[in-house]
């Protein structure tokens, strides 16, 4: 399996990368970890004329934590995401997603930005990032814009990214007191698996033993892109957390899910729906534990 021909560029800075993007436009693609892009090129699904490799730009590998939250460079590897103390301490569901992705070798190459840019609804990082309310910062030579991750995805394998734009940074706010999150994915194998369903849940309580102030539930593999389980979230707000209300949220999440019953997909639509219910309950359980745990 040979790669199609292309020109290789390795800019030293973000600005330089942006200039190249501006110059080559649609004929160029950004090469970060390459674990999706190079595979798709080998399979002749993509054949960009220019590859702009950004994985060596140090600025893109930062993890800046402040009292307000985190700024993560787009090229932070998935394994560094998984092992980062700063991330693991307060954003455990993101660590869990990173640990669930691919294999050790893939995690060492793959980047957080790449996992978002690919815009696969089976991807492991978007659910927790969306549940945490993360934003992406996009850069081009002309402008920089910041938007909620939720608005970044526009469809299956589609994003708002313009031809000359690249993902620069991911921002996550410091979680409010008494909040917690959970991530669960279901695959056939224990690792190296493209998921059948994945779910992340995030809840904030109004105090120890209090009611749920806000909730976000994000589901993967059950729509063209990651979906919010809005009706499940709604029913949780104002309620005391507990098994019964979580079960009800699970049922509503199943209704919020819109899996396609494609004949050749990894699982049937019915099974995916049912599993959304199971994983929603489980992730809410994890989130509740964290919200009432020692972390606050």
């Amino acid at each position: 399996m040979l790669l199609p021909k292309f020109e290789f560029h390795e800019p030293k800075t973000v600005d330089e990368a942006c200039q190249m993007m501006a110059e080559y436009g649609a004929s160029a693609m950004v090469l970060a970890g390459g674990t999706d892009l190079l595979v798709n090129m080998k399979k002749k699904l993509l054949s960009p004329q220019h590859l702009i490799a950004i994985s060596r730009i140090e600025e893109l590998k930062k993890v800046d934590s402040s009292p307000f939250g985190l700024k993560i460079g787009a090229c932070l590897s998935v394994s560094d995401t998984a092992s980062s103390d700063a991330i693991g301490k307060k954003w455990g569901a993101l660590s869990a997603g990173a640990k669930a992705l691919g294999s050790p070798q893939i995690r060492n190459l793959a980047t957080i930005g790449g996992n978002l840019g690919t815009a696969s609804s089976a991807a492991d990082l978007p659910p927790s990032l969306m549940a945490y309310g993360a934003r992406v910062v996009l850069k081009s030579s002309a402008r920089e814009r910041t938007l909620p991750l939720e608005e970044f995805f526009t469809g299956s394998k589609r994003t708002t990214l313009a031809d000359d734009e690249m993902i620069y940074e991911i921002q996550i706010d410091e979680p409010a007191p008494y909040s917690g999150a959970g991530y669960e994915s279901l695959g056939v194998r224990s690792c190296q698996d493209i998921k059948i369903v994945n779910v992340a849940s995030f809840i904030t309580l109004d105090g120890p033993g209090g009611i749920i102030k806000s909730a976000r539930i994000v589901m993967g593999c059950v729509g063209p892109t990651h979906l919010r389980a809005h009706s499940a979230e709604k029913i949780l707000v104002g309620e005391k957390p507990g098994e019964a209300i979580f079960a009800r949220a699970g049922e509503l999440a199943m209704q919020d899910a819109t899996p396609r019953g494609a004949a050749f997909s990894r699982a049937s639509a019915g099974y995916k729906k049912d599993m959304v219910g199971v994983l929603t309950v489980r992730t809410l359980g994890t989130a509740w534990k964290e919200a009432t745990g020692e972390r606050n």
């Binding site: 290789f8 090469l31 674990t35 190079l38 399979k43 050790p104 070798q105 060492n108 190459l109």
Partner: peptide
């Protein structure tokens, strides 16, 4: 496999394992 699934091409690069089928020589 040439697409990062099997791990037979694993090498250590800057202290971590990678599938060398998914790394360009220039990288």
């Amino acid at each position: 496999c040439e697409v990062g699934d099997c791990g037979a091409c694993t090498v250590i690069m800057d202290g971590v394992t990678v599938n060398s089928c998914l790394v360009l020589a220039m990288q």
